[in-house]
């Protein structure tokens, strides 16, 4: 890993050079929405924001993934694989460190045997240029879950803007190096003493997660989940905005005799989640489904793949229409 300095005057020029070579996405503001969108000029980028509405997960785990195509003919069905080489290289600028961590955690899920070829190809083609957070809101809780507003995990490059407007550039991976290589002359050696920690947002620790797994396991048979989830209306917002939620549903969609098998985002909040063909649903109440959400993130995932299924971005709570607040519930579980 190398650390360099990118002057604020050079920032736009570097992005323009990136745009010469590949598809570039960035955080833009449009009709009250802050989102990752394809950009054609650095001018489009929004500078003052806390977090995009949706996470960056759709770059590597799109809401709909075509798994294969099928054509039905008289006596046979032909299956055609998707040509993964058509997936373009993409550079995403302005990713928040929590979203980058989210993508890394998705890697642990999709890399868990057998490896998922769609995810692997997409991540291979995606360069994540993250920007450390210089401000946070009351919903952010990355520091309670092992993260930090300046973590480099999951990023190819992490920029931290200092008080002069210049950026400390931590170039972490070879993908990061190749993004720098479009204009290496713009990245200077750091000659002064720059401490990136000084410029990071202050995200207070809201709960101590040391014993979270043990405590949540003990809570399994209690009524706390039922109680908390009485107001849950069972929409899919929390799972869809979550950078780590990876549950999916398989559907076929066809026109005439041709179609695709699709992998679609799913959500454990939905009452059809894990509904059996028989009509039996092992999680037939909203409380059981909410418990599944928390157990999966803070018990099953740590046990199986040694990562928590949460990055503390706070989106699920920020966008919940009935104010289900995950850090509030976790705080009550650990205390």
């Amino acid at each position: 890993m190398e650390t360099k300095l990118l002057r604020k005057e050079s920032h736009s020029e570097w992005i323009e050079r990136l745009l010469d070579n590949q598809e570039v996405y960035g955080v833009v503001s449009q009709n009250k929405r802050i989102s990752y969108q394809r950009i054609t000029s650095p001018e489009e980028l929004v500078k003052d924001f806390i977090i995009p509405d949706m996470s960056a997960k759709s770059f590597v785990f799109p809401s709909i993934e075509n798994l294969f195509a099928f054509i039905k003919r008289k006596d046979e069905i032909n299956i055609e694989n998707i040509n993964l080489d058509t997936i373009p290289n993409k550079v995403i600028i302005g990713v928040r460190p929590c979203d980058a961590v989210g993508i890394k955690k998705l890697g642990s899920i999709f890399g868990w045997s057998p490896e998922d070829c769609f995810f692997s190809k997409r991540i291979e083609k995606t360069t994540i240029i993250a920007y450390a957070c210089n401000k946070a809101d009351d919903y952010c809780f990355c520091t309670s879950i092992g993260g930090s507003p300046g973590t480099t995990q999951g990023s190819d490059i992490l920029f931290t803007q200092v008080n002069t407007g210049d950026y400390i550039a931590e170039i972490i991976t070879t993908k990061g190096e190749s993004a720098v290589s479009v204009a290496p002359e713009l990245f200077e050696e750091i000659t002064t003493d720059l401490q990136k920690e000084k410029y990071l947002a202050n995200v207070p620790i809201r709960f101590d997660d040391t014993h979270l797994e043990e405590r949540i396991n003990k809570s399994f048979d209690t009524l706390i989940f039922d109680e908390y989830a009485m107001r849950c209306i069972g929409c899919n917002i929390c799972a869809f905005v979550c950078p780590v939620c990876a549950c999916f549903d398989i559907q076929d969609e066809n026109r005439g005799n041709k179609g695709y098998r699709l992998r679609c985002w799913d959500s454990c909040g939905n009452k059809l989640f894990t509904l059996h063909t028989s009509g039996h649903n092992p999680r037939h109440t909203q409380g059981m489904r909410w418990r599944q959400r928390l157990m999966h993130k803070f018990s099953y995932m740590p046990k199986r793949i040694q990562v928590k299924g949460c990055v503390g971005c706070g989106r699920c709570s920020r966008y919940c229409p009935v104010d289900m607040n995950i850090s509030e519930q976790l705080t009550s579980i650990v205390s």
Binding site: I233, G234, C235, N236, I237, S267
Partner: peptide, 12 residues
Amino acid sequence: ENCIRCYACRQA
């Protein structure tokens, strides 16, 4: 184009 099909509209 922006709808993510979360069905919050229906659930609410």
